[in-house]
Simulated scan of single mutants.
Amino acid sequence: MAKAFEEQRRSPDLEALPFEDRIGLLVDREAAERDTRRLTTRLKIAALRQTACVEDVDLRTPRGIDRAVFAKLVEGRWIDRHENLLVTGATGLGKSWLACALGHKACRDNRSVLYHRVPRLFEALALARGDGRYARLLKSLGRAQLLILDDWGLSVLTRRGTPRSARNPRGPTWPRIHHRHKSAPVDTWHGAIGDPTVADAILDRLVHNAHRLQLTGESMRKRSAKTITLDGQPEH
């Protein structure tokens, strides 16, 4: 408000305004600055993988996104109702981008958001279990109103909840597994969890209370590549 007041003093046009109007401008400026700072903090904590906004989502390209359904998701009431959203489809269709766009909108709507890649999250949980931070990490995850879990199904879980590669039980090989399993359909998730009892419990809570975006069509990366020549200029 002090900064806005100094700007008013340097503006002859604003000096002519009634006192009440000038006070109103100061209050509006303070409110806007506070909202901006809070949004900046929420986005920093969310640590979204990509800078994406729902306003930039391409709904013209056929990917199986129903406009009415997407509008409801953007509205965000499903978050308040503690419902889930599953975004599935082949590699390159923009699953991570859409998830980050919805996360960005949730931050703008004053909701707390956390983004995690599942393989790295499981590694962090395993380390936290060993150094005494496990309960604290679980508490921080539980506080988020929207928890975005990306790259689910890249590895099979062990009984202790740590990931192992489906091909290499001794350790993960994320880049190779990423391309094979990123588009894994929901009906294969049971096998990715490993323990049948744990799988039943997780999927019962996750799948049956979830909205779904099943993306289809051609890879967005391939589509973009077709319009750009080797020198970076659009084709005509």
Score class of each variant (00 low, 15 high):
R34D: 12
A4V: 06
I23Q: 10
D35P: 06
R60I: 09
D187V: 08
D80G: 14
D131Q: 03
R111T: 04
R63M: 03
F122E: 06
E6F: 14
D187R: 13
S165H: 04
A47C: 12
P172I: 11
I148R: 01
G132E: 05
I193A: 07
R133V: 06
K44F: 09
D151E: 07
N110E: 14
C107A: 04
H181N: 10
I228Y: 07
T229P: 06
G142C: 06
P185D: 02
L137G: 00
V87R: 01
L125N: 03
A225D: 15
F122Q: 03
Q50N: 15
A71Q: 03
A201M: 15
A106T: 00
V198P: 10
A192P: 03
T188N: 12
M220E: 04
S112Y: 05
L154Y: 01
V186M: 04
H116S: 08
D200P: 01
H104L: 06
V74Y: 02
A199F: 01
T229I: 14
T36H: 14
V207E: 02
D58F: 08
A101G: 03
G64R: 03
R49Y: 08
P18T: 01
Q8Y: 05
R212Q: 13
L149Q: 00
L43R: 02
V54I: 11
R136M: 14
P18Q: 06
R223Q: 10
F70M: 06
R160Q: 15
L17S: 00
I193W: 02
A47T: 10
R34V: 10
E30Y: 11
F70Y: 07
F5H: 11
N209P: 11
D151R: 00
A16K: 13
W174C: 06
R108L: 09
S165Q: 05
A52K: 01
S219F: 02
I202N: 05
D204M: 12
L39S: 03
R77P: 05
I193M: 04
A99I: 01
V74I: 08
N209Q: 13
L25V: 07
N168E: 11
I193T: 04
K105C: 09
W97P: 02
